[in-house]
């Protein structure tokens, strides 16, 4: 009689366990034994001791409660953050840190997007970069030196390769150094595609909004919110180069409006040639973020503050 089970607690517990285990076995235990749950990209590398310490800091500070690390295969998401996340990118992640909430932006493709100096500055004072940001300050991590012995124990526990020199190199470094190193390796196993760029029709490379007062005002607003943190409120440079002098990509001499447009739209990947000048990298692309009018407006604004 089926009704007997409601009189026999041990039998009831066993039947409950079996019922609970069916879904568990099908969706969790069996997949675990198959290769589909253990993919690895060919050029994915285990974390170095410094990066791993940075990852520990990320976990310890609960960064994953506000930042995700997975770009969904959705059009606007790929435009905003970069190539969507692949299963094979996370083979060395114990545990995964995909997160569940984006109070701040996704970080899956943050590696290499900005120079180190940007990260140091931003961790120190996020509000200096984005006035309305609600991110806590993390400059205090500088006061916490890395413990090389613990770092070595960590890479050993995970079986990651390392050298004595890697461990030696940790001496004198602090937790902020480690966190920045971790930021810079995130998502780098997948090659960056300039594909995020919108099709750009440069025409005669003349700015259609040149000298337009409304456009300059719009450009100033956009510049203050997005560019000033690196290029300075006055345009005289900081983390990034000056935009008011007459040096463009390390070479003196004026450039076309189209040149400025391309740099804003597509950023500067290392060794890229633009109008006979060679980029070294550091500037992220903005074409997915701003339409042509906005980029031309910023160009007009930059022209308006240049030292003539």
């Amino acid at each position: 009689m089926a009704g007997e089970i409601y009189k026999k607690p041990i039998l009831f517990a066993i039947v409950s366990a079996v019922v609970i285990l069916i879904g568990t076995i099908v969706t969790m235990f069996i997949p675990m034994l198959t290769p589909q749950m253990h993919p690895k990209l060919e050029n994915l590398k285990p974390y170095t001791p410094l990066q791993l310490v940075g990852r520990d800091v990320y976990m310890s500070e609960g960064c994953h409660y506000c930042h995700t690390q997975t770009v969904r295969p959705l059009k606007t998401e790929v435009m905003r953050y970069g190539e969507y996340s692949k299963a094979g990118e996370f083979a060395y992640d114990h545990p995964f840190l995909w997160g569940s909430k984006r109070t701040g932006p996704d970080l899956a493709r943050i590696g290499g997007k900005y120079p180190d100096a940007w990260h140091y500055g931003h961790f120190e004072d996020p509000q200096k970069f984005f006035a309305d940001s609600n991110m806590p300050k993390y400059g205090w991590l500088k006061d916490y030196p890395i413990d090389p012995a613990e770092a070595e124990a960590s890479v050993k526990a995970l079986g990651f390769p390392y050298t004595k020199a890697d461990i030696e190199a940790l001496k004198g470094k602090n937790k902020l150094d480690a966190l920045v190193a971790y930021m810079q390796v995130l998502g780098t196993a997948v090659a960056k595609k300039p594909a995020a760029a919108m099709p750009v029709s440069m025409g005669d490379k003349k700015n259609p909004l040149a000298g337009n007062a409304t456009a300059i005002a719009t450009g100033k607003k956009l510049y203050d919110a997005n560019c000033a943190s690196c290029h300075g409120a006055d345009g005289k440079g900081g983390i990034g180069p000056s935009v008011v002098d007459n040096v463009w990509l390390y070479k003196e001499g004026d450039v076309s409006d189209g040149f400025i447009y391309i740099i804003i739209a597509e950023g500067t990947s290392p060794a890229r040639e633009i109008e006979g000048r060679t980029a070294k990298g550091g500037m992220p692309p903005y074409s997915a973020m701003f339409d042509q009018d906005k980029i031309w407006s910023m160009t007009a604004y930059i022209r308006s503050i240049q030292n003539k």
Partner: peptide, 19 residues
Amino acid sequence: IPVTLTKSYHLFAGVNSAN
């Protein structure tokens, strides 16, 4: 996988860890 008394890493990794 324990490292010290106050630190450990999930036995599972990546996609599997998420699942």
